[in-house]
Nucleic acid binder design. Structure first.
Length: 271
DNA sequence: CCGACAACCTGACGGC
DNA sequence: TGCCGTCAGGTTGTCG
C-alpha cells in the first residue's frame, strides 16, 4: 500500500517509539526480503541509539548514533506493527528498544527491503542518487515537469510513476493528482500544456499533504498495542471508484490499464 | 526512447 | 467447502 503519505505516516509513528531510544535487540527471521538483509544488520544496530527518523521518497530512514542509517522500503505489503500480541507468520524483522517496546516489520509479499548505509554517504546511495526531487519540499514545479516531459510520447500517468521525475508518487496519488489538475492520464506527457503542468505541480503536493493529514490523525491511536503503522482509510476522488459518480460532474469514473496497472479517471473532467 | 510484458511473492475476493 | 482466476498501493529487467 505504501506510497509517500503512508511511509511518512509510518515514520512519524516509528518516531514515537524509537526516537532517542537504544536498540536492545534486532532479529531477522529469514535471510531476505526483495534482497538479502545486510549480514551485519544485527551487530551494527544492536546497542545503537536512534537519533532521528526521516523519509526519502518511499524509503523510511532510521539514523543512529553509530553513524549508520537503516533504510526500509515497504514494497507493496509492508507495515510496521507496534507491540504486537504475537509473532506473525510474515514478521521478518523484529526490534526491541531499551524501554521494552517492540516493532515487527511485516511484509507478506516480501517486495520490501532493508539496507544499512553510512549516514554521511546517504546521498551517494545509488537508489537515492537516481531519485527526482521531493514533491513536498517544493522541488516540483511546472518548469521541472515541462523539462522532464519534453518530447516524451509516453502517457503522462506513466511518467508520474517514474521516481526519477517525482520521488514518492505511486499509482493512487498519480491518479488523484491528475484528476485534480484535470489532465487525461492517457495524454502524451510532452503534449500537456504548460498551464496544466503548473496545475499538476500544485496538485501533487496537495493530494500528498491531504493524505498525510488523514494518516496523521490516526497516529494518536498508536499508544494502543498491536497497532499497524501506515494503514489508514482515505476518501479518494477517482482511485478504486470505477463506475461511481465523479464528485465534480456526476459522470462515471472509468478504469483503464496503463503499463499493466489500473488507472482511474473521469473522462469528462480530465482532458 | 517506447510500450508491452514478466518477474519477484502472498493473500483476498468473486464466481462456480 | 474448495478450486480457479484475477487483482493488489512497487521495483527492476527484458524484448522487439
Amino acid at each position: 500500500m505504501p506510497e509517500l503519505p503512508e511511509v511518512e505516516t509510518t515514520v512519524r509513528g516509528l518516531e514515537l517509539v524509537l526516537k532517542g531510544r537504544r536498540i536492545r535487540r534486532l532479529e531477522t527471521r529469514r535471510a531476505d526480503l526483495r534482497r538479502a538483509f545486510p549480514k551485519d544488520l544485527g551487530q551494527r544496530m544492536t546497542g545503537a541509539r536512534v537519533m532521528s527518523l526521516g523519509r526519502r521518497a518511499k524509503y523510511g530512514l532510521v539514523n543512529t548514533d553509530c553513524g549508520d542509517t537503516m533504510i526500509f522500503h515497504l514494497g507493496m505489503s509492508g507495515a510496521w506493527r507496534i507491540d504486537p500480541h504475537e509473532l506473525g507468520k510474515h514478521d521478518h524483522l523484529l526490534i526491541e528498544t531499551d524501554e521494552g517496546r517492540r516493532l515487527h516489520l511485516r511484509d507478506p509479499r516480501r517486495f520490501g527491503s532493508v539496507d544499512l548505509v553510512a549516514t554521511a554517504e546517504l546521498s551517494e546511495w545509488p537508489a537515492f542518487k537516481a531519485l527526482g526531487p521531493e514533491p513536498l519540499d517544493g522541488g516540483i514545479d511546472g518548469k521541472w515537469l515541462k523539462e522532464r516531459f519534453a518530447g516524451r510520447s509516453a502517457a503522462v500517468k506513466l511518467l508520474l510513476l517514474d521516481q526519477r521525475i517525482v520521488a514518492g508518487l505511486g499509482n493512487i496519488y498519480a491518479c488523484e493528482a491528475l484528476y485534480r489538475a484535470r489532465i487525461d492520464p492517457r495524454k502524451a506527457a510532452g503534449k500537456v500544456s504548460r498551464p496544466k503542468l503548473d496545475a499538476l505541480a500544485v496538485a501533487i503536493p496537495e493530494v500528498l499533504n491531504d493524505a498525510i493529514r488523514a494518516g496523521g490523525s490516526t497516529l494518536k491511536d498508536f499508544a494502543a498495542p498491536d497497532g499497524e503503522l501506515g494503514y489508514f482509510s482515505k476518501q479518494f476522488d477517482v482511485y478504486d471508484r470505477e463506475g461511481e459518480a465523479c464528485r465534480t460532474c456526476s459522470g462515471t469514473i472509468k478504469r483503464i490499464a496503463q503499463g499493466g496497472r489500473s488507472t482511474f479517471f473521469c473522462p469528462t473532467c480530465q482532458r
